[in-house]
Write a protein that binds this DNA or RNA. Structure first.
Lengths: 205, 205
DNA sequence: AAAGTAATTAAACAGTGTTTAATAAAGCAA
DNA sequence: TTGCTTTATTAAACACTGTTTAATTACTTT
């Protein structure tokens, strides 16, 4: 059925247009301030049409959130060439932070905002598989570090969570503008400097 | 002028009523889903009156956010009896996390939400003095630790930021429901367990 | 060409934060 | 007490929001 195929393609095309428009607006004004009508204006369709392609606003931004994880996992690919697990762990942190600083709004959507995860949590019942994938990578790397003699005396599961927390904390405080409390002359570099201190600590474990 | 005084008191009274109603609703439904009309209904006044006491919705929740810091600083008072700076540092983390877990919505407002801090940032130009105070406490304690021989080879300002980040990360990932990635049987305790791992690390620095 | 199906829209609903002009209440001077 | 001024309060409107409905247009199949 060639016609059905073409219709499918057309439908996919408009879905993609909505996503592109939504992403552009969202990176410009943020999720909250991007309205369905804004998106509809951008693609020159009526607002109602969006509900034929997405159940609600949440689903749109959940789709973008998935794209963000693609992007992050892409950047993590270079780690495959790093044999030393401790070096790999540090490089993961570095890539993670670079991604967050370069794409603060996307990071916000992926790891800070509450909206899209609630959606995942309610509709599909596999708990946030995008996040689960990246966490599994971290878990494996840390396991390798432990096998290589690091992290003795530590419980690996909460340690993994702590390491993620530390890096997430560094960037999320910055993104949500809680950095004004640090010395003014260091505010611009505090995230990277904090990561450096973290590396010094990891090197001793 | 007794009359002016009484009027001032009356005015303060309604302001307080608004705040109490706003806090109750906010703890029940969250900031976003608490509307000006909800608050007005609760206090049995018209919505418009609120704008005679607060410039906008942000200012209401900024006032509550201040109350949260009072509460947190109150809990921190027990630290004054802890002489050993390293013990005090760890106790700070423990209190911080307990506060966050017991008052997740308040913590959210204080350290995760973007709204009220933007308000502070724009209107009054002293950068988030509530947060600044607690950070200063942390900075001083860490300085004391350094003077006692800990944290050699570390730059204290970014280290302070890192330590705050680690603890903030632990609780904020939990509050924003990114914990489903950890092993299911440990999700309920992962924050405290993560803190335990952090303590093990601190003990070696 | 007629019928049926899918895509698209206009309009409405119930809600939001905020501003406006009008009203009610209170205090003050004569 | 009267009139005047100031303050507190409200009703109504404005310009939005996400979402649903029924109606309309476009397209495919018979």
């Amino acid at each position: 059925m060639g016609i059905a195929d073409r219709k499918e393609r057309d439908k996919e095309e408009l879905r993609e247009k909505i996503l592109v428009a939504a992403k552009a607006l969202f990176l410009e004004k943020g999720v909250e301030k991007t309205s369905i009508r804004n998106i509809a204006d951008q693609i020159e369709y009526s607002p109602g049409i969006i509900y034929h392609y997405f159940r609600d606003k949440n689903e749109i931004f959940h789709a973008l959130h998935q794209g963000g994880f693609m992007q992050l996992m892409e950047k993590m690919q270079v780690l495959r060439s790093v044999r030393n697990p401790m070096e790999r762990l540090k490089a993961m942190g570095s890539i993670y932070i670079t991604f967050a600083i370069e794409n603060p709004d996307m990071y916000d959507l992926m790891f800070i905002k509450e909206a899209p995860i609630d959606h995942v949590y309610n509709s599909e019942h596999d708990c946030w598989k995008e996040g689960g994938g990246t966490f599994e990578n971290l878990r494996m790397t840390i396991k390798e570090c432990a096998d290589a003699g690091h992290f003795t005396g530590h419980d690996l599961e909460p340690l993994t969570y702590l390491i993620w927390s530390a890096v997430h904390g560094l960037v999320s405080l910055h993104i949500r503008k809680r950095c004004e409390v640090v010395l003014p002359e260091r505010q611009n570099t505090i995230v990277r400097e904090g990561l450096e201190e973290f590396f010094k600590i990891l090197d001793r474990l």
